[in-house]
Design a protein around this nucleic acid. Structure first.
Ligand SMILES: [Mn+2]
Ligand SMILES: [Mn+2]
Ligand SMILES: [Zn+2]
Ligand SMILES: [Zn+2]
Lengths: 164, 164
DNA sequence: AATGAAAATGAAAATCATTTTCATTTAGGG
DNA sequence: CCCTAAATGAAAATGATTTTCATTTTCATT
C-alpha cells in the first residue's frame, strides 16, 4: 500500500538493530520462549522497512532472505513483536491487519486518501495531549489512542482538477 | 458489546423516524433502487438503538420483527445506510464491522476498555478542530476522521483495586 | 558432547466474517 | 394489468486469520 513520507529516514544501524533484538529476546526470555533464527530474520526484515505491512507482505519480504520460513511463523512472530512494543497494529480501512515498527521512531498519526488509499504520516503533539485530557475528564486510564484522518490527498486533488 | 452512556437519550419520535426514512428513500430513488418493506424494517430497527451493531447483531434484532428477513438483506441495507450518511462504521478492535446510526445524533468519539471491551462515548470539539488544522497544514482535503482512546475504564480499575 | 523436555516450526486444515451467486419473487412506471 | 429491472434470501465462495499436529529445534542439565 502506497505510503508518502514527509520526513527522512535511514535504515537502522547495526547497533540499533542489536538494541531492538535485545528488547525482543528479553521479552521472549520473560515469557519462557526461545531464540530462533527465524525470529531473528523476521525481526530484522520488519525493522528494515517503515511501511505498514500486512502479515502476508512481511512474509514475502522474509521469504527473500530465507525461503524456508513459513507464513505461520511470520504471523506468530508479529504477534510477539506487538506484545513487547516493537510493533503496533495500524487500523487502515482495507480491513487487513497491518503493522508498523515502533523502534526509535517518532510518534505519528496517519492521513489516508480515500481515493488512492495512500497514507501520509503526520506529527501532532496536540493529539497526545487530548488523549490525556479526555482520559482525566472521563476517569478513564488512557494508555494509547488511534487517530486517523480521511480525505483526498494533494496528488489526487491535482489529478482531478478539484482545488481545495 | 457493552456500551456505557454519559448522555441521556430517548427513542426516536415518530416524526424523526419519518425524517430518516425520507433521507433513505430519497437516496434510493437517486441511485435507482426500490422501496421495500424489508428496508423499512431494517432502518427502523437500526434507528431504535444507539449501539454499535455488527451486521449479525442487527440481523438478530430485525428477525424479531420479521423472521423472514435474511441476513444478506440486512448486510446490503447497512451498506446503503452508510452510503446516505444514516449509518457509519465504527472501527472497534474486535475486528468485526460495526455500525452506529448518525441520525439526529451528537458528534462523538469513543474510549474503549482493553480489559472488558466496553466503550464509552465522549464529546470533544477539539478533535474536530484538529482534523481541520492538520488537513490545512499538510494540504490534505480532510473529510472525516477517526479517534479512539484505549485504556482501562473506571469500573475495571475499581474491580482490580488499582487506582489511577 | 549427550540427553530430554519444552517449545518452535510449517504445512495443512479449520474457522468465520464477509461477499457473491443465482433462482425466484417483488416493486412500480407505463 | 404488464413488463422489466431490482430485491430477496438460501447457499456457496472467498479470503484473512487461527488452530492443529507431526516433526524438528532449542537449551538447561548432565
Ligand atoms: Mn505509520
Ligand atoms: Mn458511538
Ligand atoms: Zn490520493
Ligand atoms: Zn473495563
Amino acid at each position: 500500500m502506497l505510503q508518502r513520507r514527509i520526513d527522512d529516514h535511514a535504515p537502522p544501524s547495526r547497533e540499533s538493530m542489536r538494541e531492538a533484538q535485545d528488547i525482543f529476546y528479553k521479552h521472549l526470555k520473560r515469557v519462557g520462549l526461545k531464540h530462533t533464527d527465524q525470529r531473528d530474520t523476521i525481526l530484522r526484515t520488519f525493522l528494515e522497512t517503515r511501511d505498514h505491512l500486512s502479515t502476508d507482505e512481511l512474509f514475502r519480504l522474509v521469504r527473500k532472505k530465507d525461503a524456508k520460513i513459513g507464513f505461520t511463523t511470520v504471523y506468530r512472530t508479529l504477534k510477539l513483536l506487538a506484545e513487547c512494543g516493537l510493533a503496533s497494529a495500524v487500523p487502515f480501512p482495507d480491513g487487513m491487519a497491518r503493522y508498523e515498527h515502533q523502534f526509535n521512531r517518532r510518534n505519528h498519526h496517519h492521513m489516508v486518501c480515500t481515493e488512492c488509499d495512500a497514507s501520509v504520516e503526520f506529527f501532532s503533539p496536540e493529539v497526545n495531549k487530548l488523549e490525556e485530557e479526555i482520559g482525566r475528564k472521563y476517569h478513564f486510564d488512557a494508555t494509547r489512542h488511534n487517530f486517523q484522518i480521511y480525505g483526498i490527498c494533494e496528488d489526487c486533488r491535482k489529478r482531478t482538477r478539484r482545488p481545495i
